[in-house]
Design a protein around this nucleic acid. Structure first.
Lengths: 262, 262
DNA sequence: GAATAAACCTACTTGCGAGTAGGATACTCG
DNA sequence: CGAGTATCCTACTCGCAAGTAGGTTTATTC
């Protein structure tokens, strides 16, 4: 939590974040360890850097294809150093999970108070959701398998996911009740929404021409409209931003999740 | 953790796959050609059994957490026997991929000829898609990572997925053109559809109270309707089957893909 | 009823990667 | 400056699982 504030600083190690991890040492921030000659004592920041770098590596090569040596190398340190900040490879994955899920939980908490109609509250959550899934931790929170965690950690993650799921279903129910959402099978709809959004982690890369926010907007529009044409009169709320991009080949990639550039 | 009471078989590598309507070899005055053909067929059946069993095991424990000894044990054979039917663990995964994707490709080919409006053709494909993803091979085709395949095999898979993606986009375009589908961002819509459907592999278990076909129907309805309420008059095509189940707690599970029963 | 091949086995080798022991170096603070 | 601690390293262990060598059993064909 102190991280977000700290991260803006360039100093310690905060930004092993943004740039792809595959960069060669000469570049920049892959390791603030080396960047500042001095040995910094900022345990939390470094730990976060370890977790974030791990998340990027996992997203890149998969959990089991990523050795701790790989992660260490990306940070310009050695493997035992990783173990200084984290007890396990497993715990590393767990931290990625939790870190990634947190923003979604926060979004859900945030709209609890709001008094807008259900659909609008849902949409803001969905937008946050999409952003989170498009982040460095998207892969971990979505694709990583709970099989790779111990039962207790797996159960912990599960509880977080249940919380999110219930939150979305609740918004759906409330929206149906206040008339802002079409009556529907709440459970299945929640599945469909989560699936579409989670899948973003499979194909989205920050290097694409669409920002995560744009993707989020596009998806919200799709969810709202549905495939079946609406009477022209009913199009009241449709924004134009969507229409403009219709049909454009934004970037490479397939809907099935294999990325364009190998 | 027993996956299901699936292969309660004891016979080595016979029909874990199918009822295996074994035709008696005796009577036939078997020409060499015939005999060869029969042996070959047997071989194929067993190979399919290996692949299917592997798919189930992968879905259960994940690719890297499943040893070939595990798969062998599930088939009541030993590891080298697996290597008799398959060259690699990698190839095993590859076969799961291909086998799982095939029905979807078939569905796309099937509707190419049809002269219904685009939306209807799309819906039938989506239904088939959902069924495929809910099959034994769902996990492999969706969740398995191409990282675990050699470049050539990975590229092969990628090509298949591109084909499916393009097929869906094509249907969307045609539907928009013939007026049966709401104008939309075709690419993003394809992503959303594929994501929602693919995600089924994360949560669906055949033991659930909903059949795969029911899930498919529910999803198609959701896609068609959209979240924003429609004018009551416009509800022409809506089926009642959907309305009946609204709000029912069908079974355990979360939209985020951790299964209910451990 | 041999000869031949298919189908399956036991008993290995091998490499990779998670995790550790124990020591070296740098920073902080009195 | 020197004690104490935080940080990081070199150099290992060790188990697991992929893959193999080479033999044994069972079916098939002449």
């Amino acid at each position: 939590m102190s991280r977000t504030a700290r991260n803006a600083r360039t100093a310690p190690l905060g930004e092993a974040a943004r740039p792809a991890l595959s960069q060669r040492p000469g570049g920049d921030s892959a390791s603030a360890w080396r960047a500042n000659r001095k040995r910094l004592r900022d345990h939390d920041v470094k730990r976060d850097a370890v977790v974030r770098t791990a998340a990027q590596a996992f997203a890149d090569r998969g959990f089991h294809n990523t050795s701790l040596d790989d992660i260490a190398r990306a940070l310009d340190v050695t493997k035992p150093t990783i173990y200084y900040y984290v007890t396990n490879k497993e715990e590393l994955l767990f931290q990625c999970f939790v870190t990634g899920l947190e923003p979604i939980r926060a979004a859900l908490r945030a709209v609890r108070a709001a008094k807008e109609p259900g659909r609008d509250r849902l949409n803001t959550v969905l937008r946050q959701y999409a952003q989170a899934v498009a982040s460095d931790f998207g892969w971990c929170m979505v694709i990583a398998e709970h099989q790779d965690l111990s039962p207790s950690m797996s159960e912990h993650i599960r509880a977080l996911k249940v919380e999110i799921d219930q939150g979305i279903r609740r918004l759906l129910r409330e929206g149906v009740k206040d008339g802002s959402i079409q009556p529907c099978d709440v459970k299945m709809t929640a599945f469909a929404l989560a699936g579409a959004l989670n899948w973003i982690a499979h194909w989205y890369r920050a290097t694409h021409s669409m920002s995560a926010a744009q993707v989020a907007d596009a998806f919200v529009t799709i969810f709202e409209e549905g495939l079946r044409p609406r009477a022209a009169a009913a199009r009241s709320k449709r924004t134009t931003r969507q229409r403009a991009r219709t049909g454009s080949a934004v970037e490479r990639g397939t809907a099935n999740g294999i990325r364009g550039k190998s």
